[in-house]
């Protein structure tokens, strides 16, 4: 309600126009959050080309330089250097790239798999539904990081693809719950029942009617899940059981910085703030999306 603008100005326009109108009408804080996310995405895509130095290049003479300092070889370091004299800005860009890669692919993977599991449960009901729901309940009550850690313990660290899938799997049970619940209620009571009575087949009901209707809820769930995926990945990398050197994620960066708080706070501060602002922006945008996409608040009825 806080963000929704139920003004009738949004009526009778294409969905793109409506989306743009919503963005323009959003509060300043949401715009700032979106700006931040766009910047992060831009960095993630172009990191390879915009980083000033090789992120692995060590320079032992230029160790622990503060932000804005010039190194022994005359190199300018906007964010300073780390304990091996590597340029922090370049390492930050590279880390953002990897963190976003894991988060985007992981979230996408988890969303698709989770939603499909929910559809399957709703479509087949019976024992299939029962088994899936027991697994969903179990997952909901078990901290995912524990499960991830036990898999890592066995499979070992360093397998990037496995790690992405594992991290992305976080939250699958919530997608499953949403797609199952909304499908069931649509099929049993609402418009889907009405359309079935007109003689429509399963595919038409699911693809043309149910999917577009629950897509909004799934998108909102993605916006909730995405920051959680970022936090899970960076936590695990921070703990040393996630992304392994020489690759680097924001979590790795932060964990190096922990040891230099006394004399080089920026090594931890810069990646920490990057993670924090990203998750915060995503939460703010997510809250706003939830209000905008909710037909009950945006229709004004």
């Amino acid at each position: 309600m806080a963000y929704a603008d139920p003004s009738e100005a949004f009526e009778r326009r294409s969905s793109t126009q409506v989306a743009i109108a919503h963005v323009i009408a959003s509060p300043v804080i949401v715009k700032m959050a979106m700006l931040w996310l766009i910047m992060i995405l831009f960095i993630a895509v172009t990191a390879r080309w915009i980083m000033p130095y090789d992120y692995q290049q060590t320079a032992l003479l230029s160790r622990l330089l503060p932000p804005g300092a010039t190194g022994a070889s005359g190199d300018f370091h906007l964010l300073g250097t780390d304990h091996l004299g590597r340029d922090l800005l370049s390492r930050l860009f590279s880390s953002i790239q990897l963190t976003m890669l894991v988060a985007v692919f992981g979230t996408f993977f988890g969303a698709v798999v989770g939603s499909c599991i929910g559809f399957v449960a709703a479509r087949f009901r019976g024992w299939v539904d029962d088994v899936i729901m027991v697994l969903v309940d179990f997952q909901a009550s078990m901290p995912f990081v524990i499960i991830a850690l036990s898999v890592i313990a066995v499979m070992g660290t360093g397998n990037m693809l496995l790690f992405i899938l594992l991290v992305g799997f976080q939250g699958w049970e919530r997608y499953a719950r949403i797609s199952r619940g909304m499908t069931l209620s649509a099929v049993n009571h609402g418009y889907a029942a009405a359309i079935r009575l007109l003689g429509a087949g399963t595919f038409r009901v699911y693809l043309r009617h149910i999917l577009p209707n629950i897509l909004a809820a799934l998108v909102v769930q993605v916006s909730i899940n995405f920051p959680e995926t970022v936090i899970l990945e960076t936590s695990m990398s921070f703990l040393g059981v996630g992304i392994q050197p020489p690759n680097t994620s924001l979590g790795n960066l932060l964990s190096y910085g922990r040891d230099y708080l006394l004399n080089a706070w920026w090594i931890a501060g810069v990646p920490g703030c990057a993670i924090f602002f990203t998750t915060l922006s995503m939460s703010i945008v997510g809250d706003w999306l939830r209000d905008v996409l909710d037909p009950t608040t945006s229709s004004g009825t």
Binding site: R258, L261, W265, G272, I275, F276, T279, L280, S283
Partner: peptide, 22 residues
Amino acid sequence: SVTGFSLPNFFLGILLIFLLSV
């Protein structure tokens, strides 16, 4: 509240150490 649950706890811990200890 939004800030609270967007703040990864490893970063919060480090911030606290930096602030209260260092």
